[in-house]
Design a protein around this nucleic acid. Structure first.
Lengths: 297, 297
DNA sequence: ACACGAACCGAAAATATCTTTCAGAGGTGA
DNA sequence: TCACCTCTGAAAGATATTTTCGGTTCGTGT
């Protein structure tokens, strides 16, 4: 650990210019090659660079020394660093929508970027007071019912799976009739959660309303804090709504957003019930282990 | 495969995580050293790194190979690049795990940050060649079956819902018996997709195998590119594996990662079948409209 | 013009670094 | 317990880098 790498990297081009006059002709050729294409040169060995510049290995090493590195090896390392910086400095520029003719690599980048954006927006817009209240209710609930339909139905199931894993009693409903029938069984101390992006999915509002009227604590996870579903919700958790495009329907970003909220609920509840949650998690992990074929390791 | 050198540099930590389980003990030591201090390791020779990790040169080289570089020299170059990037990119603040006594606001921030990280890692690690091949197969398939169990089952359903929306024929199976019974109906030109984080869930492997043996095009979405499931997969899509903690089980990040892959598949297919996909999307949107109560706006 | 010396340059030797091979250690399943 | 198989590091082998050293060029003084 004797040596920090050769000086602030960005200055390489400048250093070449400064030192150029004091260089011999062949060294100048090497220096210029290095300055004009750091990435390319980083891929070359001494011999390669010597050939490229029409000089010898010795000259390459001399140049490296002159530029302030102990030898060619270290110059090369610095070059790789420089190349990486240039690379990353290049614009993120993924501002445009996904187009029909985008190459697949762009699709991946854009989708990832947009979902990241959605997460950031959701986290920023989430009311921690409401979240805390919902967590408290869940942690103390006798049982919990979750309503969701379509894409939101999957989120409802995700939440249910998680809660079951830490020993709580939870059910997900996507059949509106069954949901209502179950909702009327709820009473004070129980929790009902409705998940709907639009906030106006009748099939989800009805069961929440039934639960609300029977005295259960109700929670709505929706992208529209002013929508009908919030009428019957004691606590409203707002998901973010991002601009939807033809190739990226709203369902996609709302799902990401809803899942983050659900995760927050889960972790919050797990914290509050840590004494029972931790062993329950461990137990369910154990139980699954034997369902996996032994792998290569 | 064309793959330029050492792939997008930022993905190194992620690659270490996905590959770690398939590594031997000593290789893991090396990989961990490299991931935790890229800059430091870039300054070391093979011998130095071998000594530091208490292993041999051979092991260091083996590790470099496993990480996808032709040899240690190239790993070292990539490391130097990574170090330079970190240097300039200055790390964000939230590094610690979620603790039992974190206030709820921190939980939100940390979860959002970690999921963003997961997305970035996944995007970086995704092989666009494989993805493109899978998309092509899906776009031309007579029918598609998707297998997934537990948390992955929800992802399977999500994919199915999406494909149905653009007019493709797709089914999600979480019952292993039914899945196999259906799988043997598949034939050349059909597609079967298995989703499993561990890659060794027997109940998901069996149906994929059946489909594979009956000539269907098979795709595996897994976090373990070397796991049993890939034996029967024509195309392997790798999801990222992030460090799991007690309060944030692996299922959480694997789900995020899987969903991104699924979204990419969907958008890719929608692009390829735009002529039919666009009207189908519009139609399903229309069909749902009347199920929503009119809102205040 | 010629001789001399100093700096420059590259071929090849010397050294350092990286890669491969191989045989023993340690573990696993029958 | 034994056979088998994988993991591991020591050492041999291959490359890459650095150093040495003698030939060449170019400028300078006579």
């Amino acid at each position: 650990m004797k040596e920090s790498f050769g000086s602030p990297v960005g200055s390489l081009a400048a250093k070449v210019r400064t030192l150029a006059p004091s260089m011999t002709r062949s060294m100048q050729r090497v220096a210029e090659a290095v300055a004009s294409d750091p990435a390319g040169c980083a891929a070359l060995t001494v011999t390669g660079l010597a050939e490229l510049t029409g000089t010898s290995e010795a000259t390459v090493v001399r140049t490296a020394r002159l530029l302030g590195y102990p030898g060619y090896r270290d110059l090369r390392l610095a070059l790789a660093g420089l190349a990486a910086q240039q690379q990353s400095g290049r614009a993120p520029a993924i501002t445009t929508d996904i187009a029909v003719d985008d190459p697949i690599a762009d699709v991946v980048a854009k989708l990832a970027y947009e979902e990241q954006q959605t997460l950031a927006d959701t986290a920023a817009g989430l009311d921690t007071g409401q979240l805390g209240a919902a967590v408290a209710a869940l942690a103390g609930a006798r049982r919990t019912d979750v309503y969701g339909i379509g894409a939101s139905g999957l989120v409802a199931q995700d939440l249910t799976q998680k809660l079951l894993r830490i020993g709580l009693i939870a059910h997900a409903h996507s059949d509106p009739h069954l949901a209502v029938t179950n909702a009327v069984q709820l009473r004070s101390g129980d929790v009902a959660i409705a998940i709907t992006h639009s906030g106006s999915t009748g099939d989800v509002i009805e069961p929440l309303r039934a639960a609300f009227e029977h005295g259960a604590t109700t929670v709505a996870i929706t992208g529209r804090p002013d929508s009908p579903v919030t009428q019957y919700a004691d606590h409203v958790l707002t998901t973010s709504t991002s601009r939807e495009t033809e190739l990226r329907p709203a369902a996609m970003s709302s799902r990401t957003s809803q899942l983050l909220v659900v995760d927050c609920l889960f972790v919050g509840v797990a914290q509050r019930t840590y004494e029972t949650a931790a062993p329950a998690l461990a137990a369910s992990y154990e139980a699954l282990a034997h369902r996996h074929r032994s792998t290569s390791r």
